[in-house]
Write a protein that binds this DNA or RNA. Sequence first.
DNA 1: GATGAATGAGGCTTCATTCAT
DNA 2: CATGAATGAAGCCTCATTCAT
Lengths: 212, 212, 212, 212
Amino acid sequence: MTDIAPVTRTPRAATLRKQEAILAEAERQFARFGFEGVSLDSIAAALDLSRQNLLYHWPSKEELYRAVLDSVMGEWMANMSAIAEADEPEAAIHTYVDVKLRFSRERPSGNAVFTREIMAGAPRYQDVLKAQVMPLLHADVERFERWAREGLIRHLDFTHLMFLLWSSTQAYADLGAQFSLFMGKPALDDEDFERARQLITGLIWRSLEMPR
Amino acid sequence: MTDIAPVTRTPRAATLRKQEAILAEAERQFARFGFEGVSLDSIAAALDLSRQNLLYHWPSKEELYRAVLDSVMGEWMANMSAIAEADEPEAAIHTYVDVKLRFSRERPSGNAVFTREIMAGAPRYQDVLKAQVMPLLHADVERFERWAREGLIRHLDFTHLMFLLWSSTQAYADLGAQFSLFMGKPALDDEDFERARQLITGLIWRSLEMPR
Amino acid sequence: MTDIAPVTRTPRAATLRKQEAILAEAERQFARFGFEGVSLDSIAAALDLSRQNLLYHWPSKEELYRAVLDSVMGEWMANMSAIAEADEPEAAIHTYVDVKLRFSRERPSGNAVFTREIMAGAPRYQDVLKAQVMPLLHADVERFERWAREGLIRHLDFTHLMFLLWSSTQAYADLGAQFSLFMGKPALDDEDFERARQLITGLIWRSLEMPR
Amino acid sequence: MTDIAPVTRTPRAATLRKQEAILAEAERQFARFGFEGVSLDSIAAALDLSRQNLLYHWPSKEELYRAVLDSVMGEWMANMSAIAEADEPEAAIHTYVDVKLRFSRERPSGNAVFTREIMAGAPRYQDVLKAQVMPLLHADVERFERWAREGLIRHLDFTHLMFLLWSSTQAYADLGAQFSLFMGKPALDDEDFERARQLITGLIWRSLEMPR
DNA sequence: GATGAATGAGGCTTCATTCAT
DNA sequence: CATGAATGAAGCCTCATTCAT
């Protein structure tokens, strides 16, 4: 049996594919060099497009940048919703670390764009951050506190635990290049992520679990 | 009777003070906006200097940038040497977290300039990073491994432990603005850092200490 | 029984109406911002059309611009011919002022496009101006001079009289916005034009009429 | 006796002369083509300067444009103050026409820049127009009305008389090129202005003077 | 008729740097 | 030491126009 390929691709489809390619390249570059460090020319050149062609698809550099963040945000929120469903602390920690590390592994650039934006004081994405990310984090802290009150886990400073959880997992995206350099590898591999997962989960859970 | 002139400061001294002011402002701005996001004009304006005056003290923007990193690096190495002296694991962890967090508290901008440089793949400071920071880190990992072999601590993946230690502490510099926003404060205060210290130290030590 | 379809308009008619709408909007914008100050986009946007659609009807921006001038010119010449028929000086002055002011009132934008073109040295309409407008003006001056020779009016410098007649009447189109601002009104109304008519006609005729 | 030329010109002086040259050229071009119709490049090229050198002296195109208007305004206000001193109607009319025409003759470009700005709805000079020009005009109308009440002149609609006075005199600047074309001359000369002066003054005064 | 896509040209502005004083 | 003047390079963006559908 053979695949029946669609005979003709509508122009739409080609355009969509192109826009995704642009978003991907933009994400890669913004991740490394930040908003100001990237020129539309360098994105266009990497894709063999003209600079104006980029601006045909987005009205401005800033719009393109926000589109990148929107795209990252979209995938991010989809993943994070999985966490909210965990209804038991140990599973929650595992899921959390797992999801965050997987995101770092699969979309390191997306992660880094976010980190850079936040480091700059979120001059271009404040609104979304406040409206979408912060509430989620607050809910997480709440949940841990409830579990602590219910005696399911020991009481820690869950706010700072969250900070640690976030920063330590996303470092594998943002600082991945230097981590691998440090380990003398060309890039982080599955094993590294697995070790990171075990270490972080282990560390946290050992401090959270109730003494028997 | 003669006027008692105020002890005149040699031009040298005034110049030095000025250069320090420039370095400080440059550090602040590079931290937020990255190398490309900062213009010499904006640094000069913040100090009420002329753009050319800046370039009188450093031959180019890149030199100024490296001078900032050098200055951060200097203080950093001074602090870190204290750690190397700790000859006992629990003290080492405490000192490590302590020193790193204090640095995050006292020189958040310096920290952030570093993080940005590393995220970009260290295009302007690779040499120093490789020659000075990496060896230090390797030595640290070595030390923990020795302690583990000597049965003083449990065996963990010390490389990744280092990653966690670094990322979780320096987040209080790089992401401080968003952390405080999350907690509804204008800025991080002593108490926040104390809590962070306790949480991180506690977490790590509980996983490291040998079961009695 | 069959559906009684609404009398379908031929494509022609719809097209014509559209072209007129385009011309009208172009006239309005060229009047305020001049040839270079207007983009095809801004005209298209005001009409809820695509930029390319405009260029479907005219081959280029300049052609559209000339079409606007042609349209203005057409109406203009139609009006002006009425004047030529006046065969008596007092009626001529009245008609002249009347027609010019009515044009300023009814098609202020058209007037302004002309003025702008002339102020720029008529780079895009020189040919028509020389071939059509100038001869008409010359004829007018001629006519007044004939009447003066015939003793029907006093002798003035009719060339400059024409300049005054033109400039003072068309100011009510070109500078209308500032005139109404000066008078504290949202726009010039019928009364203003009536007063202008009386003043200008009065002024001129008082100087032209023979002493009894 | 010989002129003692200053031995060295301070850089200041050269700079000032240069800025004046820029202003003059900008005025000339803005007069013909309007704000949008002029590029900094074309101004710079006419003066054999680089585009960036222009922007060294003014921070932006708009600032340069406003500087032109400021300069025109300055000379204008200086001239107009002479008028306010006339304390007798006939002299006032003479002075008014005289001053306005002289301005049209001596600074036609400056005049035209103003006219263009006004035709566009004064998007870049509204504030100054409202604050400085309008009050002056109102005062003039007031004065004529007082003279009429005092029986020194006949009563006309002085607002519209002002409109006529302004538009008819400044036409010799704005439309000068076409006027001379109409008369078959390369340019307007002294005689033309003299004739204009006599016609306009004559026309107005004949309608204003009291019957004996 | 109409529109999505693309592009070359040109415009304004920022910026690092140089030079002369 | 410091600054006024100048400039080349590069960046973002607008715009008219073309092409294919």
